[in-house]
Structures are given as C-alpha cells and as structure tokens.
Nucleic acid binder design. Structure first.
Lengths: 116, 116
DNA sequence: CATTGGTACAACCATACGGTTGTACGGCTC
DNA sequence: GAGCCGTACAACCGTATGGTTGTACCAATG
C-alpha cells in the first residue's frame, strides 16, 4: 500500500483533526448542520476564537464545510471526509485478513512441517 | 452520543497516533508482525530513537503491542485498536444516515408545508 | 446610517510534539 | 565474562498546537 505524499498529508490532517475531543464533538454536532460558529462555541468551556480555530482545522481537513445563512455561517459535517478516514482503516483491516488467510494457507499446504 | 472522559482520551490517543504518516506506515508494516524496532527503523529517514518514540505512541494508543523474541521486541498491530477507531467513524455515519431519514420523514409527513 | 450580532484574524503565551545525540541496560554468542 | 546487538530512556532543541485577548469587518435591524 504505497500512499502518495499528497494523500498522506490529507490523512495527516483528517486523523490529526479527529485527535481532539472538542473537534470530534463539533463533527458530531455539525452532522445536523444547523449551528453557526457562535452557537457551537456556546457548548464548550473555551473562547469563541478557540472554537473558531477548531472549526478551521476541521475545514482544512475536509471534515466540515461552512455555508452562509444570513449573517451566520452554518457548519456542516462532510460525509466524504469521514469516509476517507474509514476507508483507510478498512484497508488496514483487509491487510490483516489477508495475512491471516496467508497463514491459514501455509498451514493447509504443509501440515506435516509442524512435526519435523 | 455522550462519550465518557476516559473513552474520549482513548480516542484522542488513537486518532492522534494515526495523524502521522510514519506511524500509519508502522501500523501497516506491523500487521505482518515480524519486525523489531531496529528493523522498522531501517525503513525511515530518521534515527532509531525517533522510530522508537513513534512505536511508543502507537503502543500507548493500543494500536500495536510488543512481544519479545530473543533479544528483539517484535511489533505487531492490534486489530482491536483499529476497530475502535472504525467503530467511532461508523457511528458518525450512522448519525448522518439518521438525520437524512428524519428529513425524509418530515417531507413525507407534511409535503404541503413547503408551499405555504 | 448607527447599532448590534456573527465572524475573521493577528499577536501572544505555554505546553506538546517530532526530531536529535548520548548513555545505560538486557540478552545472545563466542 | 567480553563484546555486540537490540532496546530503552534522558536531555535537549525548534516548531506546531491549543488556548487567550483585542481589533476589524460584514450584514441584518432599528
């Protein structure tokens, strides 16, 4: 599994963004896609600016996007971002399964080896 | 989805650990579970100690574990760690789906509302 | 058009992180 | 048991990160 540098950076940003509990909670809340930055900020024990930064990190990672409604900017989770992360984890699990299969195959092909 | 603090910290460590390309590559290589720290280190353009630190981060996150073979310590990926991450992403996608379902339901129940 | 609500961004600070080198320790091998 | 291989860890350094406060900008509202 060779990962081109650009894709690797995308993965860095996605997993890096998800490595913070506040940001994961923003992702969860933004699934409904109804709150602006100020409303989101009201849920957390930190300044508006701090939450704004978290949102910016999520946006750069492609996990959410903003869209203007009146003077608010509503944050909505981007399903594709989540799926990108999930696909990579799926791929690792697939490699795991392939390894197990290979070991099973070895045992089947040369069962007597174990006794030599 | 209320996440207890301890679990949240686990998720911090898991996603945080995956937010680095070198560490993701170690996870991938360690699926085969054959290499010690020194062998792993030989693949990357950094010191042995740096790789050792990366392995320690992965270990604390529960994504790999070490097991002694002779004087080596072989690193093996822990499937459960990967699954923990995947389950959280699955949960987000499920919330997404539920939201879409709710919206569909609203449209079905009150189709004429849209015209008022 | 003055005001207010919502957002953006710069400057700053403390701490965490990713890397380095150097030293020490445990376990094969001779 | 001397020496070497593989690992562990401490100390250090530069930069990134997560937080703060303060200022500035737009857009709806009166």
């Amino acid at each position: 599994m060779v990962v081109p540098m650009q894709i690797a950076r995308d993965h860095d940003r996605i997993f890096g963004a998800l490595g913070d509990a506040t940001r994961r909670d923003i992702v969860r809340r933004a699934i409904d896609g109804e709150e602006g930055v100020a409303q989101l900020a009201s849920h957390y024990p930190m300044s508006f600016a701090a939450v704004q930064k978290h949102v910016a990190v999520l946006e750069r990672a492609g996990l959410v996007h903003k869209h203007r409604i009146g003077r608010r900017k509503v944050i909505r989770t981007n399903l594709e971002g989540l799926r990108t992360a999930r696909r990579l984890l799926d791929r690792y699990e697939e490699l795991w399964r392939e390894r197990v299969d290979r070991m099973d195959q070895l045992l089947k092909e040369a069962p007597k080896e174990a006794h030599r």
